[in-house]
């Protein structure tokens, strides 16, 4: 377990999703994160109105992430067999929720900068 290297992990993920899908997702995640940081720095503050809408996107992101993982792995909710399965599933859902929130917030900020807000 101590010997799990970064290269091994990368190879494993490439295999899971296919090389292009995996790196496409990495690029998309990095781009969205960078844009999120960009709008935060540009606006000097968090817009709580935008944040509210972003929060509403979280359940959608959570469900989408879980459906995606089930589809890729030929499995479903009924296959949860123990606590670790639930923890992993919640982790997947949490990642999807946070990702969706960041994406929605960033898109709003790019489309409607603070100056144009009323």
């Amino acid at each position: 377990m101590e010997e799990l290297t970064f290269t091994t992990l990368i190879a494993v993920f490439e295999e899971m999703f296919g090389r292009w899908l995996f790196w496409g997702m990495v690029v998309a995640a990095v781009a969205v994160t960078l844009l999120y940081v960009y709008v935060l720095i540009r606006d000097h503050s968090v817009s709580w109105r935008k944040f509210l809408l972003a929060q509403l996107a979280m359940p959608v992101g959570a469900v989408a992430a879980v459906i995606f993982v089930f589809a890729v792995t030929d499995s479903g909710l009924g296959d949860m067999g123990g606590p670790i399965d639930v923890i992993v599933l919640l982790g997947v859902a949490a990642a999807g929720a946070v990702g969706a929130a960041i994406l929605v917030y960033t898109v709003q900020s790019l489309v409607a900068p603070p100056a144009r807000e009323t």
Binding site: T8, V12, E15, M16, V88
Partner: peptide, 14 residues
């Protein structure tokens, strides 16, 4: 467990 299935199906080959 589901996680053991995930290992077999998606992670072992890599």
């Amino acid at each position: 467990l589901w996680i053991s299935w995930l290992m077999k199906e998606v992670a072992l080959k890599a």
